[in-house]
Structure formats: C-alpha cells, structure tokens
Design a protein around this nucleic acid. Structure first.
Length: 297
DNA sequence: AAACAAAACAACCGCCTCCGC
DNA sequence: GGCGGAGGCGGTTGTTTTGTT
C-alpha cells in the first residue's frame, strides 16, 4: 500500500491510446510476449507505464476478445453469475468466452443494473426491492391501510395497489425463472403445480400491463403461459436456486385487499359485499395461494 | 443544424494478494 | 515472519458517441 509504481512517476503518457501506440504494443507482444509488464514499455519503445500497457492489452488488443453487443445468453449468464458471485467481474468473465471483466462491468453498470431496477429488483441482492412496496403502501390513502376496517369498500383503488404489487411480482418471477432455466439448462421448463385454487387458464391472466415495455421476450411469454397448465414435470425443490425458495416463502401480496377487476391484474377475486373476499392467483407456483379473508366483520 | 443530455465505453486509480527474497 | 515488487481487481472518472429537443 502506498507503494510507488511506474504509473505514479511523472512522465509516462496517459489518456486514450493512438493507433500507432496500439500497433507498437501488439507488434512487441506478438514477437516477444509481454514478459514483465513493468519492463515492457521501455523495450517496446512506448511512453506508457506497464500498467497502462497491460490494461490496454487485456481489455482491448488481445486477439481473442469478442467485440459487439452481448447476446441474450450472455446476458442471462451474467445475471445468474452475478446473483451468486456479486461484483466478481473477473470470475464472471471466466465463464464468458472473449469477454473481459471490464467489458462485463461496464455492461452491468450501463444496462443490466438499470434493467433490474426497472423490474423492481435490487441489483445487489437480486431480491425484490422492498422499498418499492413500502413506498406503495405510503402512497395509499390512509383509509386503505391494511388494517383499516373500511378498506374493502373501495375496491377499485385497492385493486390498483394489488395490480402494481402483482406486476412487480410477476416481473420478478420472470427473472427468477429465466435464471432457473439457465441454471438447469432446461429449454422447456414447466413449473411446479399451483397450489390453491387456480382460477382458469384463460389468456387474460397473462395480460399484465406494460410487459413489453419491461423487456419481455417472446420465449418467456411462452413459458409464462405454461404456468397455468397442470403439473407435468416439476423440478425437485432442491433444484431451485436458494433465493427462489426464499422468495417463494415470502409472498407479499397484500392480504386485506380485494380485486374486482381481474383483467387489470393477474388475480381473480370473489367477494361477498366487499367484506369477505377471496383472492386466487393462478400462476405463481407456491407464491400466491388462495387467500380467504374473514376478519373484517 | 446546433445545443444539450444521456448513454456507452475506455482508461485510470488505489488497494489487495501473491510470491520471491 | 517481514518486506517489497508485480500483477490483478473493482470502483470511479473522463471521453466519446448517440439520441433528443
């Protein structure tokens, strides 16, 4: 720590590399190998510090570097590995041929992080952003707070809140399933059976607003549709990533709301004068079970 | 077409770990 | 075991490119 390096000394050029410098560096390494990075600049006739040369070579000039946009598969791999490894860019890079840690890091910071946040997922923990839900609660008028006895009389606003909640859950579920799919290498993943009382397999249950705007792809739409089907070949519990199981046990659908507008959300509700109601959600395995409320009166 | 903003990317910096002495 | 040099890593900054008004 605090040691001087060749880069700390005054003299060596900094900033963007010129094509001539690139050529000099490539030529030297091709002929002699890089050897000692510290000694390389002098030997190659470059007015750069060794560290700068190493970075330029490993991040840009190396012949095996893959340029261009990240593919869907690469994106999924990064998401999955990041959920396990965190910001260990070099470790992640070892799983992606031709991609450098720097490139992956940049891609994460400029694309994936924002994408996850947009989906309501904390990019650090890969868990749902609970702050969104607490904010949602804050936004509700006081008469709609969960314990309020009269909340059920204003179903429309409550349903909107649930729809938001459900949408975020849905988007998160997409993410989990994509990650699981990647993890298991299964191309036609059929989720486990749905507990409770699935309402129907009507397509309306997949009409979640703004899915396309949130980066939905057609493959996943197909997979999501399969969620309403009967169990065919469910994976064993231990095949799920740990965070999937944890999330599944932490269903956060508000329990004192009722929905009277199923096409606005992914749930269906039967109600009894707005006082007693039940809500069934049909396509999140073990996540949205049938909720029956009887405590209002 | 110009100005400005946002996004993307390359490069730098400080710190850490490893390894030889 | 301690020290110091070299290389590596992750965070951050600076520059360039692209998009928008």
């Amino acid at each position: 720590m605090g040691k001087s390096s060749s880069c700390d000394e005054p003299g060596p050029k900094k900033g963007p590399w010129t094509p001539e410098e690139d050529q000099q560096l490539v030529q030297y390494i091709q002929q002699h190998g890089h050897g000692s990075w510290r000694a390389l600049p002098k030997l190659a006739g470059l007015n750069r510090c060794g560290k700068s040369c190493r970075l330029r070579w490993t991040n840009y000039l190396r012949p095996d570097i893959k340029r261009g946009n990240f593919s869907q598969d690469e994106e999924k791999t990064i998401l999955h590995l990041h959920s396990i490894l965190g910001n260990k860019w070099s470790a992640i890079a070892t799983h992606l041929d031709g991609r450098t840690d720097n490139e992956i890091k940049n891609f994460w910071n400029t694309h994936l992080k924002k994408k996850l946040m947009k989906m309501g997922i904390d990019p650090i923990t890969h868990q749902p952003r609970t702050d969104l839900f607490s904010n949602l609660q804050d936004l509700l008028p006081s008469q709609f707070q969960p314990l309020d006895q009269h909340a059920a009389t204003t179903l429309h606003d409550a349903a909107e809140a649930v729809a938001q909640s459900v949408k975020l859950q849905y988007l998160h579920q997409q993410y989990l399933l994509q990650s699981h799919l990647l993890n298991t290498g299964v191309n036609n993943y059929i989720p486990p059976p749905i507990k409770g009382n699935p309402v129907s397999n009507s397509s309306q249950y997949f009409a979640v607003p703004e899915i396309d705007e949130m980066g939905q792809d057609s493959n996943f739409t197909t997979m999501a549709s399969s969620l309403s089907q009967a169990d065919k070949n469910p994976p064993e519990n231990d095949e799920y990533p740990p965070w999937f199981l944890q999330y599944s046990s932490d269903a956060i659908l508000p329990t004192h709301f009722s929905i009277n507008n199923p096409e606005d959300a992914c749930c269906s509700t039967s109600s009894n004068g707005g006082i007693r109601s039940s809500t069934s959600c049909s396509y999140w395995p073990e996540l949205f079970l049938e909720e029956t409320k009887t405590d209002y009166d």
